[in-house]
Design a protein around this nucleic acid. Structure first.
Lengths: 329, 329
DNA sequence: CGGTGGTGGTTACGCGCGTAACCATCACTG
DNA sequence: CAGTGATGGTTACGCGCGTAACCACCACCG
């Protein structure tokens, strides 16, 4: 009754057929030649025993598993991340593939090794992998599938850059020319922050604006005011701030309020993400709203399409981003 | 050069020994009887070929894999979650075990099936699993390891209940007797929200206070004000609100401000989590701060200790929670 | 010089599965 | 009635690995 797991041999015995028959039936073999009554006997036996095929056996037999490994950067994950995982899990499940998430924390088994051990079908990643990992995976014949490519604007970093550009577009349209960029303190966020920052700088360069001043917003609330004060002192001509995201923006907003700097007349401010709390600040925050579910579905679809070898990925990225003008600009 | 993955046979050939020798060397077999020079030849060959053992083969041979499956509820994951995953990954890696995260999204392969397929060493879970899953796993002889048990107060739900109790303790100490509870709108959050809510109700019951009025805070910012208005109308005698978390609390705070209800004189408010933004509201939010890294380590340690069969888990839970009194109470 | 024990390996097998190759049966045709 | 498909299965093998059982060799002792 402790019951080791039932194997296909158990099912075969229970159904009174050979193991091969069981395998053919349960896999719906393409050129199947199994009579209907037999099929049903097998299926019933499998159900009765609660049979689940051993991935190990199957993997060994056909050389690769049904596992797709999603490589996540070592960064704090938010709502978008979990929705993305969710969406990818669904899409892959529909194709009979199982998603396994690997968080690239420093002490975890390194990605290529884990991928090899699991005999994965492919490695999916939102961001370009380190060259060494890429090389190691390629050497072992493991496919690496990026969520999207630079050329079609589907890459995660392209999406992030576009968010930065949209911040600048809005501020410039409102007449600002001297901008600053507010970075988050957590270094692990740089995978997201760098592309957004790049987008801002590119958009400025294209308009012949000066390079935005940069400052880091500390995690410690009491340290925020000094950081904002320093910016105001170092770059007095700045009239608008692009924040890495809404959280950073709200921290900056707090600092400005404490320093009695009026928003938006003396200083404009814009965030990214459109988190619920952005609507509740005083004044409410202008932001680039990212539709999390849609973005996640979009990235998931792009990734899964690439996995399937599909080169045509139609979804335009504008759909998932839009400006939410409120009172800080 | 496309190179299929090297197997232990390849290593054996390269080193000029038998496959068994390779296996003994690479696994550091307990009663190993392999000469040092041979050992080194094998290790060198393995390194040269970039050999990584196939989990499938190993799993098949010894009946179970080195994988521990972490079952996550279908709920939006936040910072605490990702830190927990991180901490568990580290702890397990130190024991040669690999953590694989399974998000229980509706369309994913069901947990018992995945566990069986992976021939997992154990299933780890933060919350009690559905009875059906538990039974299925037990039937297949798969260990289920909870993060902690009710009896020692280490269970996740006990931790969450304690947060609710602490909210009440603080409000009662400030003289409040008629409380309300603000629930989040997303139904997936109920795994977290129910225990916190339970803690609040228990603490009230123990003090012979009336059962707190309950209301749900909608995600849509424009719907928050009506929700708060409805609460004020339905339960006019309420003088303090426990919010599910800081986000909900900040939404409620916004609603109260719009309705010109003074905080904290007419209505007190307390959150849970201690997110950075809680410090930036006007007035700043009183909250139960959860040290995310410490909590994650604590839960991870408890879970890993249980996995190792250790019954003695010393860490007291008080360490990771503390009251952060600010201006809303 | 036959036995004895230790050293350093090798050979052989099975884990659970997919699948190619094979085979028995039977209805039908020339 | 021998020959021919079609039908409905079965037998046999190998995937990569761990490990029990075995074996060749040599030093040493009685």
């Amino acid at each position: 009754m402790t019951g080791r797991r039932p194997t296909s041999a158990d099912v075969a015995r229970e159904a009174g057929v050979s193991r091969a028959t069981v395998s053919y039936v349960l896999n719906d073999a393409p050129g199947e030649r199994i009579a209907q009554p037999t099929r049903e006997r097998v299926l019933a036996a499998a159900a009765r025993l609660g049979y689940a095929p051993s991935l190990a056996g199957r993997t060994l037999a056909n050389g690769q598993s049904d596992i797709v490994l999603l490589a996540m950067p070592d960064a704090p994950s938010g709502e978008l991340t979990s929705r993305f995982v969710d969406a990818v899990t669904r899409s892959l499940a529909a194709q009979g593939l199982t998603l396994v998430v690997h968080f690239d924390v420093p002490s975890a088994p390194r990605l290529p090794r884990l991928a090899a051990m699991l005999s994965v079908r492919a490695v999916l990643s939102l961001f370009p992998l380190p060259d060494a990992d890429n090389a190691a995976l390629r050497r072992m014949g493991i496919r690496v599938v990026p969520a999207g490519t630079e050329s079609d604007g589907l890459a995660t970093s392209a999406l992030l850059r576009r968010q930065g550009r949209m911040q600048v577009e809005h501020l410039v349209a409102a007449g600002h020319t001297r901008l600053a960029y507010a970075l988050p303190a957590d270094p692990r966020l740089s995978v997201f922050a760098d592309p957004r920052h790049d987008g801002v700088r590119q958009a400025c360069a294209e308009r012949d604006l000066p390079v935005p001043a940069t400052f880091t917003v500390p995690d410690d609330p009491s340290a925020v005011v000094p950081a904002v004060r320093a910016l105001l002192a170092d770059a007095p001509q700045v009239t608008a701030i692009c924040a890495y995201n809404d959280e950073v923006a709200l921290a900056v907003l707090h600092g400005l309020r404490e320093l009695a700097v009026h928003v938006p007349t003396r200083m404009a401010l814009i965030g990214v993400d459109g988190i619920p709390l952005s609507a509740y600040s005083a004044p409410p925050l202008t932001t680039i709203t990212v539709a999390p579910a849609a973005t996640a579905r979009h990235l998931a679809r792009a990734a899964v399409a690439r996995l399937a070898g599909d080169r045509a990925t139609p979804v335009p990225i504008e759909d998932v981003l839009h400006l939410t003008p409120r009172a800080t600009t």
